[in-house]
Amino acid sequence: MTLPLYRPGQRVRIADRTPATHHRVPAYAKGQTAVVERVCGEHGQPENFIRGNGEPLTRLYRVRLLQRELWPDYRGSHLDKLDLEVFEHWLEPAHG
């Protein structure tokens, strides 16, 4: 098992791409910056489940977004968050 590329608390960017295959990154989250909340083990990649068991097994993260950053017209509290699960190959280090 390889070591996680990202650690809880680290800022990451969710990749903005749309492969032709099935994938599990919702459009609203693509290109967004988030903070790693926790590391959630290794699992098959949704893009690869069409063959075998989704190998290579890939680390999954739970990441947290600020609702006010995510939706420009967000009307709730500045405290509000949105968490989702993103595989490692969809994450990039966030700069700044």
Binding site: V25, P26, H43, L60, D83
Partner: peptide, 13 residues
């Protein structure tokens, strides 16, 4: 003052 956390089940959790 209450923080709302939405959890989107996008993968294995």
């Amino acid at each position: 003052e209450v923080e709302v956390r939405v959890h989107d089940s996008t993968a294995e959790l």
